[in-house]
Each structure stands twice: as structure tokens, then as C-alpha cells.
């Protein structure tokens, strides 16, 4: 399968496009792919500038335009966040919320995954339980928080339970639907090639489930966090949600914003870990972008 290059075709061309338009010569002719403001640094700089403009406006408007008791100002918020991050009381709150979140999220993922795999593997169980699961999923998870407080008390256990509940449904649905999308022809091909059931699992089912699994992780992590914080709002004696609530009750806007800043940092950390994991696994499975597609198409 030879590909004819432009030099085979006898048409009038400008001098520069002469015999061999390839590699460096071509790159020089068309220039790098870039818009006027779209270089890698320009975008980052513009992002930072946007944040700075907002912060400056906030600082200047707090008082003259906006009520300072409600919006505080960036300098005070930074101080409050720093206090939170440097005091032992602050760390104890961060630690409580962190443990609730990580344990609740991990258990939720585990339970949702196992449930999906079991229901997928036993079709009868799937048909019996699926409507029930849908009914329970219809309840807003926060509405169950008072019940969990009754069951597990106002300590960390009740928050973990809410997080488990919030995360597991997303994981269940993502994987359960993912299982249905496993390509039946691939399964048949592997079986005709002599694959046993464990080969089908390893070479077809599990790799097919990787994308919905990671999509599920990214979708359920914020819900687990929502569950933990909401649980702490309702009844708790420590944690970032507790702190947020108490600070706002005491009209401490700076403290409230400071706790929010820490929450944002936590969720960014979790999200970047999940993104990293996602990319790693997809790359190992050859599903990630390796930029080879263009090279292969030329043949």
C-alpha cells in the first residue's frame, strides 16, 4: 500500500513547494499550530489574571459596595485559611473530614462495584433487584442523613454511611450499564480462539469496564464530599462542615470562607489523584491518547 506523495503529481506548484515538501520544510511553511493568544503560557497567564482581577475587586468592593460582615475580604480570608491550616484544632477538623471522606468514598466505590458485578453476573438477581435499587436511589441521599444519625450516632460513622450511600449508586449504575455495553462479538471471538471464562473476564470484560469505572469515580467523589459535609451540618462535634456551620452562625465570614478554601483544596487534590489514575490505567490499556494515530493514518 504505497502512498503517492505530492511529488508524483505533475501540477504547477510555486517554487517553494518544489520536489519534496516534507518534514522540516513543511513545518516551516505552515508554522506551528497556534492561535494569537493560545500558547501554553498565555492561557495559564490569563487564568491567573482572571483570578487576580476578581480578588482585587473583592478586596476593594468589600465595605464600600458589599457588606463586609457577609463577604469579608481576601486578606482576612487568607489569614483565616492560614490559621486553619496551621493550628492543631484546624488540622483535627481537616483530619476528621478527610477520614470520613476517604473511608466513605472507598467503601461506596467497593460496594457499588461489587453489587454491579454480582447483578451483572447473575441476570435473575439483576432483574429482581434493579427496580428496588432504582427506588432507593430516587431518595435524595441527604434526606437519609437524619436516619443515619439515629443509627450511627453523631460521630464519624454516620458521615461515612452517608458518603457510602452517595457514592455507591453512581458506581453501581456506571458499572452495571458498562457491563451491558461489553461487546458480545468480542466475547464470542475470544471464546472461539480458545479463551476460557477467566480469559474473557481478563481480556474483554475488565478492560471494557475501565472507562465507566473511572468516570464513576470522578462523578461520585464530589457526591461523597457533599454527603460528608451535609452530615456534619446536621449534627457533629468536629470536621470542616461543623466549622463552616459554626463560623457562619457566629457571623464569621472570614472563617467560613477560610474553611471553604480548604474544602476546595481537598477536592482539587482528590480530583487530580483520580485524573492521574484514570490516565495511567487508560494508557496501560492502550486507550489513552498517544498521538500515534496520525502517523498510522499515512499508510
Amino acid at each position: 500500500m504505497e502512498v503517492s506523495t505530492s511529488s508524483d503529481v505533475d501540477v504547477e506548484q510555486p517554487e517553494t513547494a518544489g520536489a519534496a515538501v516534507d518534514g522540516a520544510a513543511w513545518a516551516a511553511m505552515v508554522g506551528p499550530k497556534r492561535g494569537r493568544f493560545s500558547g501554553p503560557y498565555a492561557i495559564t497567564l490569563m487564568r491567573i489574571a482572571t483570578v487576580l482581577v476578581i480578588l482585587v475587586f473583592w478586596q476593594l468592593a468589600s465595605g464600600p459596595i458589599l457588606p463586609a460582615y457577609a463577604v469579608s475580604n481576601p486578606v482576612s480570608v487568607a489569614e483565616a485559611a492560614k490559621n486553619l491550616l496551621t493550628s492543631s484544632a484546624g488540622w483535627s477538623d481537616i483530619q476528621t473530614t478527610g477520614i470520613e471522606l476517604v473511608v466513605g468514598f472507598a467503601l461506596g466505590v467497593l460496594i457499588g462495584t461489587v453489587l454491579a458485578l454480582v447483578l451483572g453476573a447473575v441476570p435473575v438477581a439483576g432483574r429482581v433487584l434493579e427496580p428496588l435499587i432504582a427506588a432507593v436511589n430516587g431518595i435524595p441521599k441527604i434526606a437519609l442523613a437524619p436516619l443515619f444519625l439515629l443509627f450511627f450516632g453523631i460521630g464519624t460513622e454516620s458521615k461515612i454511611a452517608i458518603a457510602v450511600f452517595s457514592a455507591s449508586f453512581i458506581m453501581f449504575y456506571n458499572l452495571y450499564l458498562g457491563l451491558r455495553l461489553v461487546d458480545g462479538e468480542l466475547v464470542e471471538i475470544v471464546r472461539v480462539m480458545g479463551g476460557r471464562w477467566q480469559d474473557v473476564l481478563r481480556y474483554v470484560t475488565l478492560p471494557s469496564l475501565a472507562p465507566p469505572f473511572f468516570a464513576g469515580l470522578k462523578a461520585s467523589a464530589p457526591l461523597a464530599m457533599l454527603g460528608v459535609i451535609a452530615g456534619e451540618f446536621i449534627a457533629s462535634f468536629n470536621g470542616l462542615g461543623h466549622l463552616l456551620y459554626i463560623d457562619s452562625q457566629q457571623l464569621d465570614a472570614a472563617g467560613t470562607f477560610g474553611a471553604l478554601v480548604v474544602l476546595v483544596i481537598m477536592s482539587l487534590i482528590i480530583n487530580s489523584i483520580l485524573t492521574w489514575l484514570d490516565n495511567l490505567v487508560l494508557r496501560l490499556l492502550g486507550l489513552g491518547d498517544r498521538g500515534r494515530a496520525a502517523a498510522a493514518k499515512s499508510r
Binding site: 475470544v190 480458545g194 486507550l287
Partner: peptide, 16 residues
């Protein structure tokens, strides 16, 4: 087990 199947779409495993 002595048969091989070539289907209409190539059906290669995308992750290998």
C-alpha cells in the same frame, strides 16, 4: 476449538 472466526468488523481487542 479447531475453528477460527473472521467477522465482518475486525473485532480486534482495542486494548492490545
Amino acid at each position: 476449538a479447531e475453528a477460527a472466526y473472521v467477522t465482518q468488523s475486525a473485532n480486534l481487542l482495542p486494548w492490545l
